[in-house]
Design a protein around this nucleic acid. Structure first.
Lengths: 339, 339
DNA sequence: CTGAAAGCGCTAACAG
DNA sequence: CTGTTAGCGCTTTCAG
């Protein structure tokens, strides 16, 4: 049977110093003489000692664990975000405890409680709606939280998104400039702020040009539903162009249009998505879309969260970062169009 | 400023019992009278008390945290696996601390050390090669580890994979039955056991039919490299059929074949992949592939790991689960072919 | 069944 | 700079 763990006390004994000396050599801001540090390091190496993070967390009150809540890993946008978030956090000395939120509403409450049980230093909630009860709960526990790719009216909840409203407008302007008049929208889940903002921006720009939405159907951010929505929308009086609320659904829309309805894109219909997930750039889809500036969103999210954790300045911030329209082949390009 | 945490002592005081009584009501196997439990529960609810998992971990020695190492989140196979793994673990009362392994060899060592620092109860390494040093390190720390979708010769390392050798054979038999003779293989990273096993099975079945591999190129499990490999392979004396080591690369192969080389699939060339990721079933790709039985792989992985954690029976197991060939449109189907 | 007491491994004052 | 002394919040003997 192997010994489960080398303790700082054992290292201390071997190095001929006090246990606190050991602690100090492994604590960033502590002061110890070169000599001591060296002796300790040597003994530690020989014994294979590493500080127990959990014990450290208990006494210091900081676990250096960030709870991350995610929902739709099927949507390529999220694995990518998760990876970047985790890397950025890791770089700053934090680690990610991951929690998958069931689509079930109310389940999220349980999840947050569980997260809190782990004494996380902070929470990042990606694509999840937080009741103000929950945010209150976290505040009471002294655990800062920031929303990623979702925003809320709650004034003391930090949130980072792309500028979805502006993005929606860009799509409308682009479609209009291409001469489309009969324009449809396949919406995602209405409960998501991203959906609401994208659509609002889209509609408003359309309205400014005196154009009303030709047709609308809901895809709920789910592949099959998006396919259904497409069938319904194109059953009669089909639109000339469609803005799909995210790329994930847009891929299904494209497939349905081409392989089921036998339509040509963009000859028969222009399609524009949102997110710029990897697959959007693959030749088979070649989807024109609005890019979410993931890197900057991640950087900001981490920045805000760590600032809140480390400086305890409760200042909440809500950021919406502008993302560019990426021109590809799924939508007719207006003559002389430039970004 | 809000109070950071309600302690069991506070609950005890309010409930008029000892602190140990509180601990007992929240400890599964403990004994306490109905009366006590009720009083404690009530007080706990009023105060919003929840046991501190970290403190519990410290004294009990079990953190109920599983360290999960993943590498290629871009490959749809992994987000899916991650989700299932996490859900299964959550169901059993464990949570996942995620670590993204850089492709960098040697970096994995650092990662494992970090994982160990968190006193995890076990480790699941997905798509990562473990040096026997590392596995030794974990054993010394008393932390069981099981490999997911990767296998190793190390006899005391548990591993769960699909039956890659058999899968490779199936592809060969299928292609041969369709009458193909000039058959190529686009390989993944040679360091992966999955790659080696799939190719070995493939080659062996080919050999039994007296057929030698017509051409071979390496894609390293990376999209761009797979595209390059395709270009090279089809530059002259193109094969009639290609077995691509995983779906992730196969998607790029398909795109390159169709949109760059102008070939028709499966008329000009049959393509078969491996994994059956979601995108393989999307109409744009419609890829014939060998399905990895993810659910069963996950179930077995969790089963083995928890068995090792909870029963401390060091019995290591290596499992290879058979997966079916999924017939779709990217490869010519032999006349009268049945599974 | 229940309270008192002893730590888990570590950091953070506190005197020297 | 360094050792000593308290705990962090909880589980777990050990006597009752």
């Amino acid at each position: 049977m192997s010994k489960k763990h080398v303790t700082s006390a054992e290292v201390a004994e071997r190095a001929g110093v006090s246990q606190s000396a050991v602690s100090r050599t492994f604590t960033p801001g502590a002061s110890a003489s070169k000599k001591t540090i060296e002796k300790v390091r040597k003994a530690a190496a020989e014994l294979g000692y590493r500080p127990n993070v959990l014990a450290r967390a208990m006494v210091s009150g900081k676990s250096r664990i960030i709870g991350l809540v995610v929902a739709y890993l099927e949507n390529q946008f999220y694995p990518e975000a998760l990876e970047k978030l985790s890397n950025e956090l890791q770089k700053r000395g934090y680690h990610v405890l991951i929690f998958l939120a069931e689509k079930t509403a109310g389940h999220i409450d349980t999840v947050v409680e569980e997260i809190l049980d782990y004494q996380v230093d902070g929470i990042i909630a990606a694509s999840v709606a937080m009741s103000s009860d929950l945010s209150e709960r976290c505040r009471a526990a002294g655990v800062p939280m920031v929303l990623f790719n979702r925003s809320q009216d709650d004034p003391n909840m930090s949130a980072v998104t792309s500028d979805n409203y502006a993005g929606g407008r860009k799509v409308a302007e682009f479609l209009l400039a291409a001469g489309h008049q009969k324009i449809g929208h396949i919406a995602g889940w209405h409960g998501a702020s991203t959906q609401r903002d994208r659509e609002a921006g889209f509609i408003s720009a359309l309205a400014e040009a005196g154009v009303a939405l030709h047709s609308r159907a809901e895809g709920d951010f789910i592949l099959e539903k998006a396919a259904d929505a497409t069938r319904k929308m194109f059953a009669n009086d089909a639109p000339e162009a469609v803005f799909v609320a995210n790329d994930h659904m847009a891929l299904a829309v494209l497939d349905t249009l081409r392989f089921e309805l036998g339509l040509k894109v963009p000859e028969d219909v222009s399609v524009v998505g949102y997110d710029d997930v990897p697959a959007a750039g693959w030749p088979a889809y070649n989807l024109t879309t609005v890019r979410q500036p993931t890197n900057r969103m991640v950087a900001n999210t981490v920045e805000i969260l760590l600032d809140q954790i480390e400086n305890h300045t409760g200042e909440t911030r809500r950021i919406a970062i502008d993302g560019p329209l990426i021109l590809r082949g799924s939508a007719r390009i207006p003559k002389g169009w430039t970004t």
